[in-house]
Structures are given as C-alpha cells and as structure tokens.
Amino acid sequence: MSEKKGFIEVIDFHKSFGSKKVHQGVNFFVRKGECLGLIGGSGTGKSVLLRSLVGLEKPERGQILIEGVDIVPMKERQLVEIRKKVAYAFQGGALFDSMTVFENLAYPLREHFGFSEKEIHKQIMEQLKEFGLEGSEKTLPGNLSGGMQKRVGLARAMMMHPEVVLYDEPTAGLDPYNTKRIQESILSLKEKGVTSILVTHDMPTVYAVCDKVALLQQGRIGEQYTIEKLRQEPPGAMSQFINGESA
C-alpha cells in the first residue's frame, strides 16, 4: 500500500446490471482514519459501490484494494477476514427479526470470537450504553423505531471493532434528534481512528462528519473535494447537485 494512496483504494471499477452500465471506471481512495462522503443522484450506484467494498457485489472489471489487498478475486471464505475488518451499516439496519437486540449484537461475537457468555454480556451492555440503547436488549427489532433500528445496526456492525465502517444512508428518514445521535456515533468512531465511507443525500451530515466528498455522476467520480473547499466555494457540478440543479 503506497503512503500517498489510501487504506481503501478503488481502481477502474466497472459494474453493469444487464445492459445498464452503472459504473464505468470509478477511481477513488480513502486514507486511514479519513471519512469520505459519497454523494450522487438516485440510481447512480452509490450503494452498489459500497456493497462491493465488502464483497457483497462483484465488479466486472477493476480492483478494490483494502490495505493494498485486492478483494475482487476473493471467494466468500477468504472474504470473512476482510469482513471482520470492514463493517457495513445497512440502510434499514438489516437486523435479524427473529432475534432480540441482545442476540443481534451477540451474533458477530459468538461467530468469530471465543468469548464466554459473561464476557459477551459485558461487551453488549457497554455497546448499548455507548449507542444510547440501554434497556432495549430484550426487544425484538420489529418493536423498535426506525432510528433505533439504525443505531442497533450500527452497534452490531461495531461489535467486531472494525477498522473501516461503510455507512449506507445512515440518516435517511430520521428526525433531527435521531440524525444528530447517528452523527455523534459516526464522529465518536472517527475519533477512535475508524476509516469510513458514507453514502448519503443528507448534506448537513456530510458537512458534520466527512473529511472529503466525492460526487458519483454518469458512472464515474465526477468531482472530489475536501470539506473545507466545499464550505468555502462550492465548485461546479457538485454545487449544482447540492443545490438541486442537476441529478
């Protein structure tokens, strides 16, 4: 892995669905500890790109380097180690609806670590406290609000202490209070040195948590700026997108 480039590096990424070419040579990188905001119109393939970073989708062409290792040719079994490092926070939480919040959080610990049930209980209680979810451990996901489901999803993704977190629309459909809580959780993880990529349409969240922003347009990264640059003088295409003047 070159020092100049990133902890995560996407090179010449191509992905199609049938005859529709969604990505036509996407290139970007994210340095360790950095948070990249990935924005773009609906259907531009932001979530597909994010899913590919954890091996849930395979590109037709291109490389995805995580710490310099290309994950594209990896089989499911080999991807297990990557998935311990790279967590994915699903848009709707993707909680297992037949399990309680406690069991959802215990899932990665029971699968990958030899912890005793006592240790698992301790870790989960700490995690619930950190994410403001105390008292919800016995609740089934169906009985939680949308915001709480997202936070449980985020808490579950963090149970394995990943080095990278991929957020898929973490604040979509949330009220300002829950949006703020999610932003705080992301910032808290960022302070711990977690590298992250955030797919969102929510510009206040981008300004609040991201270090740089990339605009996905017409199958490529159209523009990419640091958050400071974006604050000072919103540049061309990105400015148009943010102001709702182009898709």
Partner: peptide, 11 residues
Amino acid sequence: TQQVDAIRALG
C-alpha cells in the same frame, strides 16, 4: 430486508 446480506457482511 437485507438480512441475508447482513449474514454475509458479518462474515
């Protein structure tokens, strides 16, 4: 509901 994806994403 992406639970199958979650199973994969959790290794």
